[in-house]
Nucleic acid binder design. Structure first.
Lengths: 338, 338
DNA sequence: GCCTGGCACTCTGTCTGCCCGAGTGCCAGC
DNA sequence: GCTGGCACTCGGGCAGACAGAGTGCCAGGC
């Protein structure tokens, strides 16, 4: 177990390193922090911290930098979440309130997060699987061609073109539309399959094929995972990464281009509360020198999607966590209102 | 006027520099290209080319590199467009044909372009202003709340929430929906305002307010320019830019994040034919050391949007132009089919 | 027992001087 | 107008020296 002072030393090292980007030595530490002890004592503490694996030396006779394990301890025990100041909160709220539609909400959220944290922001679109159906619309485009439009409570709209096995009259279509909506409107996606199961039986035999086709398209749309879109922004902030660029930045950019990777990344995060993955805790190799701070957000009490930021392990964790949490909260509010 | 051989020398310089990324000297040139003259002669030609501003020396006693003006001449006079090979064409077609909806078409196009050219790809969504209306749907969500869904011939769907000034019956809504569609379905966006102008007059006095509100929302949606979305990809290719990164890459990343900048960039390109903007020809400062190759694409003979790539001025112009042209052509085909 | 000041040691980053190679410009000759 | 030759310039790479920062350890003091 580490003594109180050693934890303080670790905290000081993390804070200084995050600020200066340079390995921090014992002398500088005592000068900048009121530890009440001399550099020599701090050196002893540092040696202990190094033995435990919390900090490391890039090379002999350099200062120390925190390891992933050190950051982990810092985040878990030594630092809280820095709340946003009232003016900041107001700015966030104002900025998000100007949004005109869902795309805009997401786009604004990305910008905001990127600006506040000066890092790369990732925002997942409110997910279909968690939300409820507001309305299903069926449009006849041709005798045997129907367009399905699904509107969700988060304001998202999905459309699918359907080629029917047989021509389908306008009356039958209206009938199907009415029955469908009375059953699924306001229901959660996960309940829909059960609710429409027996629907084909209510129709004439010659229409059943089409009804089934429409229903299965609807169900596909509901579960379609590749439709989990997301938006990223602030990649220019990657240039602040370190001085040894190309090698560091390239794999990160590559990872960010792969929506699949990002979705998995956000998916791995806890559903509730904030998740911080530090360095090698990230499964994806390209992100081994980054940390990901993510949190769920949603219109009700429930999270419908996640958002977060990707930055160097050497990041301002309290500030970043504060910003992420605040943004998630306000986005949730905006979604609930609209 | 430059002699034939001097043009050949310029062409050789561009080709070598693009290949090696290093200033090219007279000796290397004569070795790699069959110019039929000695290095000394080439040196004289180089001096002339430098006087004219086509090439430059990074410093005394280094080889020469092309200037923007040199690339311009190269693109205009010295190089053609390198056609894709049949296998490449087939690969492009196969890859694009797998797309399931418009989003997917655009996403695949971006990936494809980025991979083929190994540069940053930018694809504009088929623009609303050029296309036609397939269907307008109105849904009553609450007594005084209507959702407008606009479906375009390119498969794009836009939705807007409308708060009505007065409650609006289901019958009136159906009436409006029918009248609206009979007038605008299949028509170009630009014609819509004229076509719906007198529509409110057909309704009872108490409904006119709502009808007008709906119509104006529709018109807004049609012209809404900020809805000109685009997608980019291949930013990881920026890391191949040069060895002096941070300074070069940062402004480019920043420019790429600004949709407005990119839209303007594509907007500046000619409507037909391929546009190549080299280095300082780009209005945006951050892109002064990049070239942009763009071209319009569309489902019919007409361009509905643009796509292109952004790369270092030192790029393989013939190859890039070939890839951009080929992709645009096939995307056009895919859009026409769906 | 813990903290402290002092001292020797190590390593990095930087600066200097040096040399080599690549490339040029120019000139005289064919 | 082309060519070979020659002197000149400049950047890159390498070795050595040096200053600065930081450490580890030890003996002494509270």
């Amino acid at each position: 177990m580490l003594s109180e002072r050693r934890l303080q030393v670790l905290r000081a090292i993390v804070q200084d390193y995050v600020g200066t980007e340079e390995p921090v030595g014992s002398k500088a530490l005592t000068e900048r922090h009121n530890l009440g002890v001399s550099p020599a004592t701090v050196r002893n503490d540092m040696a202990a911290l190094e033995d435990e694996g919390y900090i490391a030396q890039p090379h002999t006779s350099a200062g120390r930098i925190p390891t992933d394990k050190g950051y982990r301890l810092f985040v878990d025990k030594l630092a809280g979440v820095k709340p946003m100041s009232p003016p900041e909160r107001r700015a966030i709220q104002n900025f998000l309130e100007g949004a005109v539609d869902l795309d805009d909400v997401v786009a604004r959220t990305v910008r905001l997060l990127a600006q506040l944290t000066r890092q790369v922001a990732v925002v997942q679109y409110p997910s279909l699987t968690r939300s409820t159906v507001r309305h299903v619309e069926l449009l006849s485009l041709a005798p045997a061609r129907v367009m399905l439009v699904l509107i969700t409570d988060t304001g998202r709209v999905e459309q699918r073109m359907i080629d029917c096995p047989a021509p389908f009259g306008e009356a039958s279509l209206a009938d199907l539309r009415a029955r469908l909506n009375s059953r699924v409107a306001g229901r959660r996606f996960t309940d829909v399959p059960r609710l429409v199961e027996d629907l084909p039986e209510a129709f004439d035999i010659e229409d059943r094929g089409t009804v089934s086709t429409v229903l299965s398209t609807l169900l596909e749309t509901l579960v379609e995972e590749n439709e989990e879109r997301l938006m990223i922004g602030g990649t220019a902030n990657l240039t602040r990464f370190g001085h040894d660029f190309p090698l560091t930045i390239r794999p990160v950019l590559e990872a960010l281009e792969e929506q699949v990777v990002l979705l998995k990344l956000l998916g791995e995060a806890k559903d509730s509360g904030m998740t911080v993955r530090i360095g090698h805790e990230n499964a994806h190799e390209g992100l081994n020198s980054t940390s990901v701070v993510s949190v769920g957000y949603g219109s009700g009490g429930e999270a419908v999607a996640k958002l977060g930021v990707v930055g160097p392990t050497r990041m301002d964790y309290p500030g970043t966590m504060g910003a992420v949490r605040a943004v998630a909260r306000y986005v949730g509010q905006i979604l609930a209102e609209s």
